[in-house]
C-alpha cells in the first residue's frame, strides 16, 4: 500500500475515483448532526458538510454540493479518514493534512489516500479547493466541543 501511494498513476486514479464516485455524498440531515455550509471565495465550490459527533467520537460524516474534482475528492477522502476516530485523532489527521497542503512536513501514514493531494501545495490557486471540506469539518469539531462544555 505504502509503495502504491507513491505512484502518480495510482494517486491520480484515487482522485478520479473519489470524484466520480464520492463516498458519503448525501446529507442525512438527521437528528444530532452538526452542519456547515462552505462556499469558496473562488465563487464556484459550494459544499455542505455534516457530522455526528458523540462522546468525543466522530460517528458519521457526510457531504453534498457542487464542486471541482479537488474539493469533491478531498472531502470524500476526508469522510472516510475521520469516521469512527476520536475528535483528537481527527484533529491530528487534519493538522497533518493542512501541513501537507502547505508544503510542510507531515505524517504520511495518518493521511492514507489523502496523500494524493500532496501536489496541490504547488498549485496555490487550488489550495482552497483542497481544504474547503476539511475546513467545514474543522468548524464542526469546534462546534461540538463548545457544546460539550
Amino acid at each position: 500500500m505504502a509503495d502504491l501511494l507513491k505512484d502518480p498513476m495510482v494517486l491520480r486514479e484515487i482522485i478520479m475515483d473519489h470524484y466520480e464516485y464520492p463516498r458519503h455524498h448525501a446529507l442525512t440531515n438527521g437528528h444530532g448532526y452538526l452542519r456547515a455550509h462552505m462556499a469558496s471565495e473562488s465563487c464556484i465550490d459550494d459544499i455542505q458538510v455534516e457530522a455526528k459527533i458523540e462522546d468525543g467520537i466522530v460517528r458519521d460524516v457526510n457531504f453534498e454540493g457542487v464542486a471541482c474534482t479537488i474539493s469533491t475528492a478531498s472531502t470524500s477522502i476526508m469522510t472516510e479518514l475521520v469516521r469512527d476516530k476520536t475528535v483528537e485523532e481527527a484533529r491530528e489527521i487534519m493538522k497533518n493534512y493542512f501541513a501537507m497542503i502547505n508544503g510542510d512536513p507531515y505524517d504520511e501514514d495518518l493521511l492514507e489516500e489523502a496523500v494524493a493531494f500532496a501536489g496541490v501545495s504547488k498549485q496555490a490557486n487550488r489550495i482552497k479547493c483542497a481544504t474547503i471540506g476539511w475546513h467545514g469539518l474543522e468548524k464542526l469539531l469546534a462546534e461540538s466541543e463548545k457544546k460539550d462544555d
Binding site: 491520480r12 482522485i15 470524484y19 474534482t69 501536489g119
Partner: peptide, 10 residues
C-alpha cells in the same frame, strides 16, 4: 480530459 485535469497535480 478528466485524467489530464487531475494530472496537473502530479
Amino acid at each position: 480530459t478528466l485524467e489530464n485535469c487531475v494530472g496537473v497535480f502530479f
